[in-house]
Design a protein around this nucleic acid. Structure first.
Lengths: 259, 259
DNA sequence: CGGAGCGTTGAACGACCTCAAAAGGTGTGG
DNA sequence: CCACACCTTTTGAGGTCGTTCAACGCTCCG
């Protein structure tokens, strides 16, 4: 069966309605309860590196709480933080390129579920809930990665910074008592810079500028307070996309919570 | 069951042996033959835009031959080519972020298999071959994306250019009669620039420099000849990783070929 | 012929990087 | 509790690489 017709989409930027289908594609699917029984729960500590292999086997990691970071280090000391994994995210060790100095490490402590890929894929083939969870987690993460790609490839320093802050705020932020959103900034300047493809010095300067313009303040190290999230959103062209992706989820995702 | 111990990996850059497991993680899995019966084969034409939705439903695309391109366009005309899809690659419309002006378009004509996501996922749940194919394709593509991320985030202009050329050479190149590798360069300068997070002018200049240094020549528009691929590889820090990822596959992947 | 689109090239500018120095934080041992 | 070493962060001054803008050539097509 070969069909060439009716394939074209004239609109270079399809309206949102074309993309949103029966179900909202990015509606989070809860981590299946069963998964806990098949994998080991690991308490992660800040800064810790998590081995990608598990007894020499490929592994799967499901973030229950906290945040992980995938880093790649290429020759000449070129380091790139490829992606961040938040609660509900799934990572398979084969997602990391070999021969590229890939490391998975903890930026925010929490609980991670770990199991062999073989065990996970077997479970997925028998349990539709797990299959659904996996598909939707991977889809959401890929979409998120696309935005990140655009930010690193096309945004200027301030836009990238704003994008990261908005991402953190949307994912891990909670309303503060004095209005605004408060959230952890668990990454060091260097990690943030490597995530955004920037120099750490430049990033620090940009951060200072944001702080002095009142968009942001630091109640303490590793935390940030954004008085008005809308002001921050104005600074990044990716605001709408980020909201669409993870606007709704504010709470940590536990295996027993259906969001 | 909670275990905190034996989780750390001391080595920031784990040796290749840690990553390569029972099976080579990136060994290509052939496109299942069954897939052809469940989806429509679409002949794609250069420049054509492929609708992400299929009768209002989410869709899956499997590249049999040719090359596709996923582009994101954010406000202010910021355009980023997020990834390229080569034969054997799989794309699901939910991988594209909504509200981000995502388009899937054809850069190299060929055959694409298209079906509803619902149909595909149903097939995957009953046919292990399809499940395996999907998992491995997604893993390979994620790994590839990680390299791309590092290139855009950290490489200078020449390194990015060399990375793209090497990627194209490894994926679609064939030995030329006069020695060296010959391959299609189906992307326009602007598309290449948007893929690499560069300005088209800058890219053109860099290309000219590579050409005048004899690393590369253009037998005709949209084709490139690299006399010595090793020389090109020396220019990019991602050479080893790219080789590891898709060093072996030179031929187009057909649904009837087991590579 | 005229126009649109793509690719190339040059000159000038500016955003980000590099390098260096100082300030601030954290952890350890006395 | 302090002293010390060590690391991260900040900030400045200067340099660089990529961008911007504009002009020109080429090809395709009406």
């Amino acid at each position: 069966m070969v069909m060439t017709a009716s394939l074209k989409a004239q609109d270079p930027i399809p309206p949102a309605s074309t993309i949103r289908m029966e179900k909202r594609p990015f509606a989070p699917v809860a981590i299946p309860t069963d998964l806990g029984a098949h994998g080991a729960t690991v308490n992660t500590r800040r800064g810790e590196t998590i081995a990608l292999a598990f007894d020499g086997n490929e592994a799967v990691f499901v973030v229950r709480s906290g945040t992980l970071m995938l880093t790649v280090t290429l020759p000449h000391g070129l380091r790139q933080v490829v992606s961040l994994f938040y609660p509900g995210d799934l990572f398979r060790s084969a997602f990391a390129p070999s021969d590229a100095g890939a490391t998975l490490s903890v930026v925010r402590p929490g609980e991670v579920l770990r199991m062999r890929w073989s065990a996970f894929s077997e479970l997925a083939s028998s349990d539709p809930e797990t299959t659904d969870y996996m598909s939707s987690a991977i889809a959401r993460q890929n979409a998120s990665q696309a935005i990140h790609m655009a930010a690193v490839g096309r945004f200027d320093c301030q836009q990238r910074m704003a994008t990261l802050l908005l991402e953190l705020a949307l994912r891990t932020g909670s309303p503060s008592s004095c209005g605004g959103l408060i959230f952890d900034v668990p990454l060091s300047r260097r990690d943030m810079a490597d995530y955004l493809g920037l120099n750490a010095d430049t990033l620090s300067r940009t951060m200072s500028r944001l702080r002095s313009s009142g968009l942001l303040s630091h109640p303490d190290r590793h935390r940030a307070l954004v008085p008005d999230i809308a002001d921050l959103a104005k600074l990044t062209p990716a605001a709408r996309s980020l909201m669409a992706l993870h606007g709704q989820s504010t709470a940590e995702m536990s295996p027993f919570t259906t969001v």
